[in-house]
Design a protein around this nucleic acid. Structure first.
Lengths: 220, 220
DNA sequence: ACTTGTTTCAAACATATGTTTGAAATGGCG
DNA sequence: CGCCATTTCAAACATATGTTTGAAACAAGT
């Protein structure tokens, strides 16, 4: 009934509107979130008719699901999966790379940051897609960070301690995205340029490395 | 035209529905945010007719504005304004009090945490009220925390350093509220009981105190 | 050129939601 | 009681927004 043509031998033709829709929707969803984004807004940006969303994606929810998969592919191009492992870097350096990459995924412009922004939104304003996002994206990333933190905390670190430290690190990165409206009011000079992101990553890493050590000594 | 009766000598009568509305709306807005909350949902909970919102508050936005003021009064009862100052506590202890109070304002049940939850929502999903919230609530709190941090960082700390550290501390507190949907999926055992909040405050404080020291030594 | 399957489009539709309205109920006061 | 301001209510209204529809445009094969 629909999208039959894509299974034939002309995947290039017939795609333009579907693709326009995917890209427009990715940008809009990343900026506004699922709920606040409107189908008409997306279609206007894509230059298509509103009915196209239903024709190609079976509705707004279906479009959103496809956007998540598409944004995932776009992000992989920039941050090849598990590129950092195998390099055998010092864990301190690995933490800095993790933090910096995290920030870039949230603040880069263009499609490479769509996934990060969508995920950030999902956390604050969940949709039906959150469960999948947690299992497919967040869980693996969490495992990686926990590995790094365990190296830094030593083998005697309790599970609970690792988790708390993990959240302390991640929270500092997410904050700048979630609370951007407040930050821009509190500190109007604060910017998110490439250079500023690097400095931010340095601060978060230094703060966290010292913080990690602080949780090691002493009972309770 | 409206709410004339309250200026007479019977403020107790005529108030019930207005007050019911305020309390129901506070709970709903705190839980769902301004946009997702519906007038009908609030009125059902308050046991009033939908038109009452317009009669007493001139619409949803007016109700929300009053809710912010009402929640502010409710929060002050629990956390008397600037109670911590003047006691001359060690800054380490002051930081712990700040963090613990912050968490309580987000996770307490009942009206004492309404303001904290509303503010947390405003940060992530701003409304027209955000500017006022920043100036009247967040800015003063920020000043207080910066004072504490400056004591810990020493008089030579740069403004920029203080700000970054401030955000590192605050971000860790807000994270648990903003990202609760993710946390409950990642760590289903994680709870927010009174006891757990105390432990959380201890972790964040220890992590941050050590982190603060880590930002002191060494240039760049 | 005809036919068939695919795509596009404007319009209509359905629903949710904030708001308004006009009448009915209420409650003090002479 | 009977009058008045106040309050409550059910219903209607207006708008935004996701979805459906039926026809027209298009493309490809025979």
């Amino acid at each position: 009934m629909f999208e039959m043509a894509r299974d034939k031998e002309k995947p290039a033709i017939g795609e333009p509107t579907r693709q326009q829709l995917l890209e427009a929707a990715s940008a809009v969803f990343a900026e506004c979130g699922f709920r606040a984004a409107t189908v008409r807004q997306i279609c206007e940006r894509a230059g298509t008719n509103v009915a196209a969303v239903n024709y190609y994606f079976n509705g707004k929810a279906g479009l959103y699901a496809e956007v998540l998969r598409f944004a995932h592919r776009c992000a992989e191009e920039r941050h090849p999966a598990s590129a950092a492992s195998g390099k055998n870097l010092a864990p301190e350096r690995e933490l800095e790379l993790f933090v910096h990459a995290f920030l870039q995924r949230l603040f880069d412009e263009g499609r490479t940051a769509w996934l990060g922004k969508l995920m950030s939104r999902e956390m604050v304003e969940p949709t039906a897609a959150l469960d999948a996002v947690v299992e497919e994206q967040i869980r693996p990333s969490s495992r990686h960070l926990q590995g790094v933190l365990r190296q830094l905390l030593g083998p005697r670190a309790a599970m609970e301690q690792v988790r708390l430290c993990e959240m302390s690190v991640v929270s500092q990165c997410l904050f700048y995205h979630h609370c951007r409206p407040v930050i821009s009011r509190m500190f109007p000079r604060f910017d998110f340029s490439t250079e500023a992101l690097r400095r931010l990553a340095v601060h978060i890493t230094r703060f966290s490395l010292a913080g990690l050590k602080g949780t090691k000594k002493g009972g309770d």
